[in-house]
Amino acid sequence: MDTNQVILEVSHLEKSFGSHSVLKDIDFKVKKGDVVSVIGASGSGKSTMLRCINLLETPTKGHIYYQGKDITEPGTNVCAYREKVGMVFQNFNLFNNMNVLENCMAGQIKVAKKAKEEAEKNALHFLEKVDMAAYINAKPRQLSGGQKQRVAIARALAMEPEILLFDEPTSALDPQMVGEVLNVMRTLAKEGLTMIIVTHEMAFAKDISSHVIFMADGVIAEEGNAQQIFETPQKKETKEFLARFRQGI
């Protein structure tokens, strides 16, 4: 394993809300081009971990290294870091006061300080990629969930991030819309974008992940490649969790 390739390293990460400890001693590394899926029961800390990586939650203890730099140190330029580590949310969080095109341009103009023409061209490129270019004049409230999520992905891509974090991107969608979002993510994975995906879509996770992390009660209970986790899980919790999923609960 070439350590130069490690783009993100989470080390002894802990997070507690008051006396309630949500994450206990999380450790893992992400290499460039990795597609890491994080699975586990609700409340196991998956989303909190992802939010800690983006610093939307401040870690209680531990370190997160992005390209070798500890971003939990005070004095880190959080905004510059977030520009490089994008996030796609369960509830899309598109800007309601802007149309689709403006949503994909705002960050490029305000944060990346791009010229308007360049930002527009770039936004259209990514909107076309998620097949939403026809809707540039629509407001978020006029779109379906699946359409909103595809725009949200285009908005994140328009910042040209090094890593993209997905926080249950299909959990708020109707079944028929899940597919369109997953297809977009599949394309991104094939193109080599580094992604960390918190998801309940097991078949999808098995299909596209280079690495799978199974979380239970705030710790990484088991990790490995997709084959290891889904076909030959070692831990009792992993087996039980997957068995419940196969039964369709």
């Binding site: 983006n54 939307l56 905004c79 510059a80 870091y81 977030r82 520009e83 994008g86 996030m87 949310f89 509830n91 899309f92 969080n93 598109l94 800007f95 309601n96 705002a106 960050g107 305000k110 944060v111 990346a112 949200a152 908005r155 994140a156 910042m159």
Partner: peptide, 11 residues
């Protein structure tokens, strides 16, 4: 979520 969406793209 609007604030989080804005922060997530580096604002």
């Amino acid at each position: 979520g609007q604030m989080e969406g804005a922060k997530a793209i580096g604002m």
